[in-house]
Design a protein around this nucleic acid. Structure first.
Lengths: 346, 346
DNA sequence: TTAAAGGATGAACACGTTTTCATTTCTCGT
DNA sequence: ACGAGAAATGAAAACGTGTTCATCCTTTAA
């Protein structure tokens, strides 16, 4: 198999395959598109020759005429952040199975949306866009992406209706945080915790805002005093320092609910290694997300699970449905949360 | 600014911008390409109108005629793996600054290359491809990617020449592991460690193979007995179990050199939480990579730093150089490693 | 003032595919 | 055997851009 001799230099085109198979170039196109009429034997022959020539239809050319790039843009502030890397991983796998590819873009970590980045991304013509940047308004996104309909992650407060009020233009992923958070607070309450602190995420983040408000409401419903707030940013280092301040400058707490798991890790390490407190005996800790690292023995974190697989499946469903119904009104998916009990409460 | 009224539905094209600016379509194309001759005032006007109309040149069309997709394919077995997620993050940032975008593909975690995936990826026509899959041969990659020249990560053994012997066809990133590993072993030896074990990475991985061989040579040079090998796979769970087996079934060790940092985390947690041994008093641990988590207080890992920024800069240099010299022989970059001392040896 | 040189400009072509449409060939019931 | 409907087929158009080339305009040097 000395390919280099027989094969022409550079990429093979449909024309070359057609010539070799003694058919028209259109037939080659049809051979690669399932729902077109082409005699089975002919399709088989074409695919065989295509494989010999290492031919694959050029997606750029295909996108130009069909209007489908089969690219899904993903905007993240920080790929290494555990939650996001796991999301990207699962999403890429799922999209790949549907014939799409993930196009990655990084924006600033301060959660400020970057109009320049949106224009840059638009050039690649993604069929859909998923933004893990919290404070970007769907309207802004929509203005920059002509074809793609952005997905809006919505966090309804307990009791509030899931029905969209404002703009039914955008697809929605509703995340019900109440159940998981209520189970967590109930567990803490059961173990005698009364002075519960909240380690926040990034201040501007919508996820953080809704999480804190849900927590307040749950605690009020259970007759608990409002939580003391320690300011974090979803990262380890900020959580570490905020916890130290909470105990050195502030009055401390007998339990800490963290806005995400990585923050909880920072809390735990600060308690154990800096403040010489025991977890869970002296202070109890609960996280949010249930990322893969949460079961590592050094942390063994009790946390509110926001199921990764469910979430990705919902996202992919939204993307595909939108692609098949470009002009339909906003679709919706709703996800719940629940507590996973491990070793940091007890 | 009621865009929706004035702006036509769908994506703006160069034609529309040209019409509005009273120039030819070619002028619009030139306005977006720096090194073309166009009267400055005219360029300015065109860019202004383009912005009003939310116009960006379509990359698909541009790729079709220029032969440059400005996409860089990245193949990974597992995005969430810490090392890889950090690499992807830094790489995406660097490529974005150069006008490229990262196209992500996932392959099987068992480090077996997937020809189907390569054909799939080829359809997107990436200008370059970076494969974090260890056992894929550059030749295989090259056969599937007509235009792109794959980058081969080479781990020369101590004393061996860096000069390529076999195929100068492929660009090379040489990683000199000796210095860092030697510093690590010297430190361990200085603290009295004699029975040093190696927690391996994935068996088929080239990085693992070369790391183990380098370690053996360094230890032999220092008059130490060859290391006992515990089989891991670069992951936390396998490292955890392998460490338990090393002490329960095998004869234990007074120091463990792990093939990567995540493996070292598994080792530490097994030692502390399962075997009730102290780190570093009873057993010393050294990792490899220096990922961001290594400074977390629960681990505070002494590790061989394989500098992320240097590595990414070298990769981007290779990519750009290759793009500007498509037919040049293989380019090379060489990186060194060094020990970062923290708290798991002492 | 004039010729040469160089910058600015637009028409036409090229890129590789899908889609549309008109034509040809096949299949099936009578 | 025959017509009708369906399936199969290829020519031509379309997608939105960069590039080439010939032309026009401006500047510069003598």
């Amino acid at each position: 198999m000395t390919d280099s001799d027989q094969l022409p230099r550079g990429r093979a085109t449909a024309e070359m395959v057609a010539a070799r198979a003694q058919v028209s170039r259109v037939a080659v196109s049809r051979a690669f598109n399932p729902h077109t009429s082409l005699k089975p034997e002919k399709r088989e022959l074409i695919l065989k020759i295509a494989q010999e020539l290492n031919y694959t239809p050029d997606r750029a050319a295909r996108a130009l005429v069909s209007g489908r790039s089969h690219l899904v843009g993903v905007i993240v502030p920080d790929v290494c952040s555990h939650w996001e890397s796991q999301e990207i991983d699962a999403l890429t796998t799922a999209l790949q199975a549907e014939g799409f590819a993930t196009l990655l873009f990084k924006t600033r970590t301060d959660y400020s949306m970057d109009e320049q980045l949106l224009a840059y991304m638009r050039g690649f013509n993604p069929d859909s866009v998923i933004a893990f940047v919290e404070n970007v308004k769907p309207h802004t996104l929509a203005r920059f992406l002509d074809r793609a309909v952005p997905i809006y992650v919505h966090y309804p407060l307990p009791g509030a209706s899931v029905e969209p009020e404002g703009e039914p233009l955008h697809d929605r992923l509703n995340v019900l945080q109440r159940d998981g958070i209520d189970q967590a607070i109930a567990l803490l309450q059961g173990f005698g915790a009364r002075r519960i602190a909240y380690l926040s995420g990034a201040e501007k983040s919508r996820a953080n805002g809704s999480r804190e408000r849900t927590l307040r409401q749950v605690m009020a419903d259970r007759g608990l005093a409002p939580p003391v707030v320690a300011r974090g940013d979803f990262g380890y280092d900020a959580a570490y320092q905020a916890t130290i301040d909470l105990f050195r400058v502030g009055d401390g707490a007998d339990a800490i609910f963290a806005a995400n798991d990585v923050g909880a890790f920072g809390v735990i390490d600060a308690l154990r290694h800096e403040l010489k407190l025991r977890v869970p005996e002296d202070v109890k800790v609960v996280g949010f997300d249930d990322i893969a690292q949460s079961h590592w023995k050094s942390y063994n974190l009790t946390t509110v699970k926001f199921d990764l697989d469910e979430r990705v499946r919902a996202l992919v469903r939204l993307i595909l449905r939108r692609l098949n119904n470009p002009d339909a009104p906003g679709f919706q998916e709703t996800l719940n949360t629940r507590l996973v009990v491990r070793g940091t409460v007890g």
